[in-house]
Design a binder for these strands. Structure first.
Lengths: 198, 198
DNA sequence: ACCTGAACACCGTTCAAGT
DNA sequence: ACCTGAACACCGTTCAAGT
């Protein structure tokens, strides 16, 4: 990459980080180019899609979350590890308004520049869930895809002004639905049934 | 209202219903006017905001859901009533893509034409929740606002192609977090009686 | 009264022309 | 190689001019 191109690339990223933080993932591409003092075509040359820009912007955070999941796979209590990681994912995603909508859209769109990151993240979470389920500490009737959906739903609620103030409570409610706290090998009353409704 | 105006009004609604069903709540207003064979100004005269159009479009459904909540307030099992109503809300909202985002935004925007409907709906749900909590069948650390947020989150997941296929499972997971089959509070009134499993 | 559509200020995206 | 910005096809919203 030519020196001037590299300078542009980095400057665009710095400006985009500010603009996306302020105005969310749907911020005007034109606005980003304008504020970066760069032609609109230059922005699109470096980041052919909005998703490509977001992926580069969030790369460090994504990698950190994936690394954290790997570390937590050897934590002493699988359920605490899962909940802690879920919390980190929701918190990170909540930093940029509207980013979770792009992520959940990318998970099924193999052409999206965000696709790979999201799949990696989902897989990392799935491992933590499987481990917790194996210990009988998470409900067995869900999988990694469901976990990712629930994380996305929580992050989306955090994006909404009407729900954001209660985000932590909503997190605890959903976390409690995932974690069972009841090892499956424990003897239960004969009439015991999971908290389910028809 | 003049006869020609009334005819326009009703034709716009009919066309809008089709367009919003097809393209979601963010459908182009221009497109709606175009397909209705009406000037753009005529559309805005009858429905000054997108929310006003949506509210009129969804009015019948909103009223039905509120009425259903009132009926269910005398149902034999409060928990079943709550879950059944919640399911109806999520299903109805899911009929129009993106409508739930408009609703959750309207709940805090007193100027929105959707505000009143959403508040009414939330209040109706809150009553069902309170009744279930009074019977010791719903977790006590949540309120009607939380219930509305959870319903919105479920409806939003239903809007996403990656989650929609698992919508029912996700519903059951969250429903199970709300419903508690055993009272969590140990210090109950002396005359408290468990009214389950008759 | 009511309707129309041009006008304005925005988008995302592309691409010929410049350096 | 890389950058620029006009061009194109869209938006939502308003409002002077028409019937």
């Amino acid at each position: 990459m030519r020196a001037d191109a590299k300078k542009n690339y980095e400057h665009i990223l710095a400006v985009a980080s500010v603009v996306v933080t302020q105005h969310g993932a749907d911020a005007s591409m034109r606005d980003i180019a304008r504020r970066a003092g760069v032609g609109l075509g230059t922005l699109y040359r470096h980041f052919p899609t909005r998703e490509a820009l977001l992926d580069t912007l969030l790369r460090a955070g994504f990698d950190e979350l994936t690394a954290k999941a790997c570390e937590l796979e050897t934590a002493s209590s699988p359920d605490d590890a899962l909940v802690s990681w879920l919390h980190d994912v929701v918190t990170f995603t909540g930093n940029y308004q509207g980013v979770v909508a792009a992520m959940i859209a990318a998970i099924e769109d193999t052409d999206s520049a965000l696709h790979a990151s999201c799949v990696t993240l989902r897989t990392a979470g799935a491992r933590l869930l499987t481990r917790t389920q194996a210990a009988g500490l998470a409900r067995s009737d869900m999988n990694g895809d469901d976990l990712f959906s629930l994380a996305a739903a929580l992050a989306w609620l955090g994006d909404q002004p009407s729900s954001a103030p209660r985000a932590e409570r909503l997190f605890r409610i959903i976390a409690s639905a995932i974690i069972t706290n009841r090892p499956s090998n424990l003897s239960l009353p004969a009439d015991f049934q999971m908290n389910q409704n028809p």
